[in-house]
Design a binder for these strands. Structure first.
Lengths: 204, 204
DNA sequence: ACGTTTACACCGACCGGACGGTATGCGGAC
DNA sequence: GTCCGCATACCGTCCGGTCGGTGTAAACGT
């Protein structure tokens, strides 16, 4: 489905983003504020300055909109992780980079994270399976970095790497429930601190 | 609200628990499986073998039922933590005990945890504030243990204790999203491993 | 150059049904 | 007889999704 040239970019309150993109953006925001079920399709289209016809023209359903939230973020984070994992440096250096990155990108997309950990179960089973598959891929790729460090003797070998990954990704998935962008710590700082705590716990 | 003596304990599929208790139990289970909004009041009363009249006799609303889930678990965990914190042992020993306990009790009440981190935002604002207040109390009490360890020089002082607590409680809150009771690790083992990872990260 | 057709982007009234909650009734224990 | 512990029937609302329609810009024919 290529981007259509005739796509309208109606001006609403100074915004010029195409309708499809704007719908996803305001939907994410509303889902994060009021929950998926607490947000009606009417709320979404009102906030985007269009009508239901527009939304059902671009998306198959309300669920479809939710799925896009997950898919976009996961796709980005996976590509980041692959680049880091394939890069140079010791296992510890690459794990540090990966950990700091996933915290940073999650905090940069806080609304997505909030929706993520709250509303996955509301997706129809097939789309839910798709998301879980992508998450599992991320998990496995992350674990491979831990495996490397264990093999190299840098990390302790008495904690199953799967458990380590669950441990750290849990921290990431909960970021939306306490972090405030205007707090005393920046996204990068939090990433650094959490990375330190992880690596410290992993040291042989 | 004292327990009524004339409370009926209708036998349904061999269960003999009083209706009020049974309603909360099946509701928790259904909320965990299908989400709060994906579970209708009709589903709950059907599963409990009663009718709506019974449920609205014991609870004010569907929300009320949800609140009870949070309140029960938090009350128990708070009392555990207070006992541990006031007990004997070094800060590290008590923090270890507290960390292992919160993991264990959370895994023993997995359904509650699943509902917990998914559906808090669906409560009306006043009850939500009540829950947050209880959680904050738990958070502060937990942090006090970290503070003690930092003051004693056992733990590193370059990571804000609040961040440490967010870090570890995030892990706890996400347990419901990956742990399976029939997996290769028991609740106690997971508690032990996570505690090790935490303490390792905290060492001065 | 100009009328005509096509196709897309979006509108907005409408529908079917599910769901939370209520009002009333009734049977059995004391 | 009266009061508690439910059962049963019902209501009003809200919400996801649909469907025929409309304006407009590109494509085409001549």
């Amino acid at each position: 489905m290529p981007v259509r040239s005739r796509e309208a970019t109606v001006r609403v309150k100074g915004q010029t983003r195409p309708v499809k993109e704007r719908l996803l953006h305001v939907a994410t925001r509303l889902f994060a504020r009021h929950g998926f079920e607490g947000t009606s399709v009417q709320d979404i289209v009102d906030a985007a300055g269009v009508t239901k016809g527009a939304m059902y023209h671009y998306y198959d359903s309300k669920d479809d909109l939710l799925y896009e939230v997950y898919h976009q973020l996961l796709t980005m984070q996976i590509s980041h992780l692959e680049e880091i994992a394939a890069g140079a440096g010791s296992p510890e250096q690459r794990l540090r980079a990966a950990a700091a990155d996933v915290v940073k990108t999650s905090l940069d997309n806080l609304d997505d994270m909030i929706v993520f950990f709250r509303s996955l179960h509301l997706l129809p089973e097939d789309k839910q399976a798709q998301v879980r598959s992508e998450r599992r891929y991320y998990h496995d790729r992350f674990r491979a970095l831990v495996d490397e460090g264990v093999a190299a003797g840098t990390f302790r070998g008495d904690v199953p790497p799967d458990i380590v990954v669950h441990y750290f990704l849990s921290v990431v998935n909960q970021l939306g429930s306490w972090f405030h962008p205007d707090g005393s710590l920046s996204a990068t700082q939090v990433g650094q601190l959490f990375t330190d705590l992880l690596i410290g716990g992993l040291r042989a």
